[in-house]
Write a protein that binds this DNA or RNA. Structure first.
Lengths: 144, 144
DNA sequence: TTATATCCTACAAAGTCAATAGGTTTAATT
DNA sequence: AATTAAACCTATTGACTTTGTAGGATATAA
C-alpha cells in the first residue's frame, strides 16, 4: 500500500515549482532544496513535462515552471500520472480483464471502498492546499 | 498502492472459514474453492494461526476453524497482520525514525489523510459484513 | 500401521524500485 | 565562434519484494 518515491518526488517537484510562480527554476535548485538525486528527478519531471503539467526552457538559464495555477492541479492528477493507477487490486483498473469471480467475490467490495476513499482524498486536495500547509508550518516554526 | 496477494488471500481464507462456522475445514478444500495454490496458502494461514485468528487441528480429518465469531474480526486486523502496516509512506509508521523534513514537509499531510481514510474503511468492515455481501451476491445471481 | 492432514524451512524465478551512467541537443553568455 | 549551462534521452544495474515451489517432518484419526 505504499506510494513510491516516483509519485512522492513528483509531488514535491510540483510543490517546489508552485512556491516559485513566475520564475524559471533549474532542476539543480529543486534537487538541492528537496535533497533528491538530480538524475532521478530528470526522469520524473520528463513525465510531468510530456503531460503538459510543466513547461521547460532549454539551454543556459533554462529550467521549469508550472503551466497553470497551483489550484488547478489536484494531488490526484500528479500521483496518477507518475504512479500509474492507484487501484488497490488489478481487477478494479479500467483496462482490467473481466474477473470470473466477479459475481461471487465479496472481498472486492473492501477494495472498492478503499479505492473510493483514496480517490476522495487525492481529488479534493490541490497544490495550492499544499502551498498553504507549507506556509502554516513555516509560521509554526517561527512561533515555537 | 496495491494490496498483495498475501493479504487478499488471507481475507479470502478467513471469509471461507467464516462461511463454515462449526466445521473443521481442510486447506485442500479452501484451496479448491478459492482457486489458490495450497502450498502458498499454508504459509499464509500459518500467520493467521500464530496470531490466534484460527485454530488448527492436526492429523487426518484435521483442518482449521475460526476462533471467534466473524463479527469479531475486522478487515483491518487481517490485512495488517498479513500485509504488515498499510502506511502509504514509511515516515508514518509507528517504528519510523524521525524525519528531518518533518517540520517543513507539506506533502506528508496528503499521506496522513490517505492513511486515515484507508484505516477508516478497513476498521469499520468485519468478516460478518463480507459474509452478508456474499449472501446478497448469491441472491442476485439467482434472481438474474 | 496406514493415510491424511498440518507444520516447517529453504530456495528460486520474475518483477519492481530507485537510482546511476553517459551521452546529445539547445540556447544564453562571453 | 567558442564556451558553458541547462534540458533531454536511453540503457543498465543492484537490491529488494513478490509469489510462489519443493521436500520433507510431525501429529492424529481410522
Amino acid at each position: 500500500m505504499t506510494i513510491s518515491t516516483k509519485g512522492r518526488y513528483a509531488l514535491r517537484i510540483m510543490l517546489d515549482l508552485a512556491g516559485h510562480i513566475g520564475e524559471t527554476i533549474k532542476l539543480k535548485d529543486i534537487a538541492a532544496r528537496q535533497e533528491i538525486s538530480e538524475k532521478y528527478m530528470e526522469q520524473i519531471i520528463a513525465v510531468l513535462n510530456k503531460a503538459g503539467y510543466v513547461r521547460s526552457t532549454r539551454g543556459a538559464q533554462g529550467g521549469y515552471q508550472l503551466v497553470k495555477a497551483p489550484k488547478d492541479y489536484t494531488v490526484g492528477m500528479i500521483l496518477r500520472l507518475t504512479e500509474g493507477s492507484l487501484v488497490p487490486v488489478e481487477c478494479l483498473a479500467d483496462h482490467a480483464l473481466p474477473c470470473e469471480r466477479e459475481g461471487k467475490c465479496a472481498t472486492v467490495e473492501v477494495y472498492r471502498r478503499i479505492y473510493a476513499a483514496v480517490n476522495n482524498v487525492i481529488d479534493t486536495m490541490t497544490l495550492q492546499d499544499l502551498v498553504d500547509i507549507e506556509h502554516e508550518k513555516a509560521v509554526d516554526n517561527y512561533v515555537i
